[in-house]
Amino acid sequence: MQKKEEFITIYESHKDLVYNVCLNYLQNKEEAEEVFQDVFLKVHAKLNDFNQQSSYKTWIYRICINKCIDYLRAKNRKKRFAFLQSLSNSKLEIHSNFSHPGVLMEDKESMRILFGHINSLPEKQKTAIVLKSIEGLSQKEIAQILTTTEKAVESLLSRARKKLKEKIESSKDDKE
């Protein structure tokens, strides 16, 4: 009973955070809801093991990011089994099912393309960009979530921005 009350308290104070991270990471409402559920089931299962070394917020962010990554890996594995993966894997991965409720209708197309570029980044770089540029976390907070140093986060962000710039410029060149 006490565990249930504790869980509900944690749920109420972190539900919006988890929902928005899932949306920003997956850019699809249905997928975000599925992962959201998995995140809180994990939180419930591991609540007794939580060692208070980090804050609940950091712990939940970590679970959330890991669940999103697991979900995308499983989805990519299924895709690979289904057909031949597109030959230009390193190129733009545009979302065929982009449905982010936080994106305005008029920005939808440009955001879909931008997220396509973000999704083509390596996992850690993408995570750093999502946490920094959308969630607005500090480098220190990101370092705690990714269990790394602030220097490493700074380097991740710098490489991610450089790659994004290159990708956006090359897609502009392709259009011209």
Binding site: D16, E33, F36, P101, G102, L104
Partner: peptide, 8 residues
């Protein structure tokens, strides 16, 4: 510009 969405 991405808006925060409350969890349903």
């Amino acid at each position: 510009k991405i808006k925060r969405i409350p969890a349903p």
